[in-house]
C-alpha cells in the first residue's frame, strides 16, 4: 500500500508555512466535513484523512518527525534505537567482510521488523476536544423481517448493542444510535453509530413505501361470470369476490393489507392486486364449438 503523503492530502508544498497549512486545512475541512455532507461515505473518509494530515503537519515537532521518517514518524524513537542496534550489528559483521551504509530498503526493513509492516495509530494527542468518529454499518434484512418491530443485537468493536428496528423501515434508510461511535478525544463526546438498512425482497409482493403490489391469475370463467377467489396477502390468505365481466389488468385495493407505516403503530398501507386473466388452452372440439356459438351471439 502506498504511503500517505500528508502534504498532498492538504494540497500544500513541503515548504508550506504553518499559516498555509491552517488555511488549506480549513478550506478542505469545510468542503468535506461530515456535517456538511450527510450520508456521504467518501466525504467522511476524505475528512478523516485531512484531519490526520492536519494533526501531524500543524504541530511543528510532529511535522519535523514526519519530514524525516515519513509515515512511520510516530515510531521515530523506536526507529533510532533499532537503527543503533543494527549499526552495531553491521559494524560487527563488517569486520567479517560485510558492507556498511543504509539503503531505503533497510529503512523500511527496520520498521517492518518492528511493526509488521504497518504503522500503528497515527493520531496525535493534542489538548483539543474532538468528537469521536461516526461508525457506519450496513444491516441486511429481509422484507419479512421489517414487517414487525423487532430487536437485534449488533456487535460493534467487540461490544454488543441491542437495537430496536421499527416496523416499516425503508430500503436505504439510516438510523442513528447516539454515542455508539468512536470514543471522543480529550473528553469530547463519542461519535454516533449510523446503521443503513439494505432490505432484500424475496416475496412475490412489490413494495412502494407502505403499499404492496401483486398480480393474481384469474381464470376466464370467473372473470366473465364473477365468483370468489382466495388470494395471498403478506400475512395470509383472504377471500375476494370477483365482479362479473372483470377486465384483464383490473386493479383492486385491499385497504390496510399493505406494509406497516414507519413509526405509526397499528397503521398499514394498502395491498393492490392486479388481475391477470388466463385464457384456456388445449380446447376440446366441444369447447371450440361452444366458443364459436358464443362468438356468433356477439
Amino acid at each position: 500500500m502506498a504511503a500517505i503523503d500528508y502534504y498532498k492530502t492538504l494540497g500544500v508544498s513541503k515548504t508550506a508555512s504553518e499559516k498555509d497549512i491552517k488555511k488549506a486545512y480549513r478550506k478542505l475541512a469545510r468542503k468535506h466535513h461530515p456535517d456538511l455532507n450527510p450520508n456521504d461515505k467518501e466525504a467522511e473518509k476524505k475528512f478523516k484523512e485531512i484531519n490526520e494530515a492536519n494533526e501531524v503537519l500543524s504541530n511543528p515537532e510532529n511535522r519535523k518527525k514526519y519530514d524525516k521518517y515519513g509515515e512511520h514518524w510516530q515510531n521515530s524513537e523506536a526507529y533510532e534505537q533499532a537503527k543503533q542496534q543494527q549499526q552495531q550489528q553491521r559494524a560487527y559483521q563488517g569486520q567479517a567482510g560485510g558492507s556498511g551504509g543504509y539503503s531505503e530498503r533497510d529503512f523500511e526493513d527496520i520498521f517492518g521488523n518492528m511493526f509488521g509492516g504497518q504503522s500503528s495509530g497515527r493520531r496525535s494527542q493534542g489538548n483539543s476536544r474532538f468528537r469521536g468518529q461516526d461508525f457506519n454499518a450496513e444491516l441486511q434484512l429481509d422484507l419479512k423481517d421489517v414487517y414487525e418491530e423487532h430487536k437485534r443485537t449488533l456487535t460493534v468493536n467487540n461490544k454488543n448493542i441491542r437495537i430496536t428496528i421499527p416496523a416499516g423501515v425503508e430500503n436505504g434508510q439510516t438510523i442513528k444510535i447516539k454515542g455508539h461511535g468512536g470514543k471522543g478525544v480529550n473528553g469530547g463526546p463519542n461519535g454516533d453509530l449510523l446503521i443503513q438498512f439494505s432490505i432484500q425482497n424475496h416475496t412475490k409482493f412489490k413494495r412502494d413505501k407502505d403499499n404492496l403490489y401483486t398480480t393474481v391469475d384469474l381464470d376466464l370463467y370467473t372473470a366473465m361470470l364473477g365468483g370468489d377467489l382466495m388470494v395471498d396477502t403478506f400475512t395470509g390468505k383472504v377471500k375476494l369476490t370477483v365482479k362479473p365481466e372483470t377486465q384483464n389488468g383490473t386493479k383492486v385495493k385491499l385497504k390496510g393489507k399493505g406494509f406497516p407505516k414507519y413509526k405509526k403503530s397499528g397503521q398499514f398501507g394498502d395491498l393492490y392486486i392486479t388481475y391477470q386473466i388466463k385464457t384456456p388452452t388445449k380446447l376440446t372440439d366441444k369447447e371450440k364449438e361452444l366458443f364459436t356459438e358464443l362468438q356468433k351471439l356477439r
Partner: peptide
C-alpha cells in the same frame, strides 16, 4: 432531497 431520492429509487425498482 436524499430521502426523496431513496424513495424514488425504491419506486423505480418496483
Amino acid at each position: 432531497l436524499q430521502s426523496e431520492v431513496i424513495s424514488l429509487q425504491n419506486t423505480l425498482r418496483l
